[in-house]
């Protein structure tokens, strides 16, 4: 009974904060446009950097795709608390009797929406310009699980870096080393999609395990980061 009520309140609070963030972000800035452009640009630049040919494209392209995703994500993650930092204040939200985990959940979902939108735009472009058969149903769980991993850690560290004077520099420095496993897993899983290997490892399982561990640690520790 009580848990049902708590859950419902948690859901309502999460939904309200998410709604507010999406609305602010859509009205004020087109950061997701910048993220999308950045991801596309990265994909084009990798093409020159690696001198892609027919014989090496399948090996190199998944790495290029995920690095483009990660870099574009960092742009969006840096704006996780933008609505609060610029015209409001996180304190003002903390004054309300709101479950701190609901704030984390809403910020995480918001990041997933924006990163997901960017991925949705760049994937077809990637498939076209690299001429690879990645637009199958198999790509969905890979992108989804990979993005959850990046955003779970990214949202937590956006709060940590946001407390410092060097927000923009610190965020990638802290996040990149921590998300190495998810990037490796996602790259390998994407490669497996293009040219399936016999006896390949359960990369999706690795990413999923990573997601679960980091979601739970982030949910527990988030409150320590944002409030006294």
């Amino acid at each position: 009974m009580i848990t049902m009520i708590t859950l419902r309140r948690f859901g309502a609070q999460t939904a309200s904060i998410l709604w507010k963030d999406l609305r602010c972000e859509l009205r004020a800035r087109q950061v997701w446009m910048a993220m999308g452009m950045f991801a596309l640009l990265a994909l084009v630049i990798f093409n020159f950097a690696f001198d892609l040919r027919v014989d090496n494209v399948a090996a190199v392209a998944p790495g290029a795709l995920w690095i483009a995703f990660v870099f574009a994500s960092i742009l969006g993650l840096g704006r996780t608390f933008a609505a609060e930092q610029e015209h409001g204040s996180l304190d003002r939200l903390l004054l309300c009797p709101v479950d701190r985990k609901a704030i984390y959940a809403a910020k995480l979902l918001g990041n997933l929406v924006f990163i997901g939108a960017v991925e949705l735009i760049s994937l077809p472009v990637f498939a076209a310009i690299y001429n690879l058969p990645v637009l199958t149903g198999g790509i969905i769980p890979i992108v989804l699980l990979g993005t959850v991993g990046i955003a779970a850690i990214g949202t937590l560290f956006a709060a940590i870096a946001g407390n410092t004077r060097a927000r923009e520099v610190l965020l990638p420095l802290l996040v990149f080393p921590l998300i190495v496993p998810v990037v490796i897993g996602a790259v390998r899983a994407t490669q497996g999609l293009i040219s399936p290997l016999a006896g390949d490892l359960p990369w999706l399982g690795l990413i999923a395990a990573f997601d679960v561990i980091f979601l739970s640690i982030s949910a527990v520790t988030f409150a320590y980061v944002i409030e006294e």
Partner: peptide, 19 residues
């Protein structure tokens, strides 16, 4: 400390939901 990209009513309603 109000959300500048929300309207006056949206701000009040948002905080109403938070409480």
């Amino acid at each position: 400390h109000l959300y500048e990209d929300l309207s006056a009513r949206e701000n009040l309603e948002f905080f109403g939901r938070m409480y």
